[in-house]
C-alpha cells in the first residue's frame, strides 16, 4: 500500500513537472516590452542600474513591505521563550581569531562598497546587508562579540531604523505630492541612497539577531 502511494505520488509529480516544463517553454508574445519601459524611465529614477531602479523606485513599495517581513520574523523569534544558554561551547581557535581580525575590516568595507555600487551596477542594500551580517556572525564565532552585547540593548531601534526611514520618506512623498513614494527625480538618487543606507544597517542587525535566535546574548554579561 505504501509502495503504491509513493509510486502514485512520484508519477503525479513527474506529470506536474512535465506540464510545467511544457508551459515554460511555450512561445509567448507578451504585448509589453518591460525591459524597454524600464530603460526609458531609468533617467528619472535616480539610479542607473535597472534592478536597483525597480527595487527602490518603480516597485519601492514592495521593498518597504519586504523589510517589514524581516521585522516580523525578528519579532516572531524574540517573543519565543529564551533557550537555555548553550553548554560547553568549544574554545575559539587561534586561526579563527586571526582570520576574523583580517576579514572583518574587509567585509565591512565591501558591504559599504556594495551599497554604493548598487546605483550603477549589481549591488545594493540587501547584498551589502547580508555581507555585513556575515561579518557580525564571524565576529560572534571568533569571540569578538563585545560590540554585540552593547547592540543588544538597542536591538529594536537598530532593527526598525530601515523601515522607519523608508516609512518617513513614504509619508513625506504622500504629504508633499499626494503620491506614495513618488520620488522627485531631482532628489531620487539621494533619497534612494539614504533609504538603502539605513536599510543596510537594519538588515544586517536583523539577520545577526535572527542568527542568535532567542536572546542568548542576554545571559552572558560582559
Amino acid at each position: 500500500m505504501k509502495a503504491f502511494a509513493s509510486a502514485a505520488l512520484a508519477l503525479l509529480l513527474a506529470g506536474l513537472a512535465a506540464v510545467l516544463a511544457w508551459t515554460v517553454t511555450r512561445p509567448v508574445t507578451p504585448g509589453r516590452d518591460v525591459p524597454a519601459l524600464i530603460a526609458g524611465a531609468l533617467d528619472v529614477s535616480g539610479v542607473s542600474h535597472p534592478v536597483t531602479a525597480v527595487l527602490l523606485n518603480f516597485r519601492g513599495y514592495d521593498t518597504l513591505l519586504e523589510l517589514v517581513v524581516l521585522l516580523i520574523a525578528l519579532a516572531g523569534v524574540r517573543c519565543l521563550a529564551p533557550l537555555p544558554p548553550p553548554r560547553g561551547s568549544a574554545p575559539v581557535g587561534g586561526v579563527l581569531r586571526e582570520l576574523a581580525s583580517l576579514l572583518l575590516p574587509v567585509l565591512v568595507l565591501v558591504a559599504v562598497y556594495l551599497l554604493w555600487a548598487g546605483a550603477t551596477r549589481p549591488g545594493g542594500a540587501f547584498q551589502g546587508g547580508a555581507l555585513l551580517a556575515a561579518a557580525g556572525i564571524l565576529a560572534l564565532l571568533a569571540g569578538r562579540d563585545r560590540f554585540l552585547w552593547r547592540l543588544e540593548h538597542r536591538l529594536w531601534p537598530l532593527a526598525c531604523l530601515g523601515v522607519a526611514v523608508f516609512l518617513a520618506v513614504a509619508a513625506g512623498t504622500l504629504a508633499a505630492g499626494g503620491v506614495l513614494l513618488g520620488l522627485p527625480s531631482a532628489h531620487a538618487g539621494t533619497l534612494i541612497l539614504v533609504i538603502e543606507g539605513f536599510a543596510l544597517l537594519s538588515i544586517a542587525v536583523t539577520l545577526v539577531a535572527l542568527f542568535l535566535g532567542t536572546g542568548e546574548l542576554e545571559d552572558r554579561d560582559p
Binding site: V68, L167, L174, L180
Partner: peptide, 24 residues
C-alpha cells in the same frame, strides 16, 4: 489631495503603529 490617498494611508498607519509598539 484626492481621496485615493486613503489607500496608502490604510497601509502606512497600522505599519507605523506596529513599528511604534516594537520601539516603545
Amino acid at each position: 489631495m484626492s481621496d485615493s490617498v486613503l489607500l496608502p494611508l490604510l497601509v502606512l498607519w497600522p505599519l507605523a503603529g506596529g513599528l511604534a509598539a516594537l520601539l516603545a
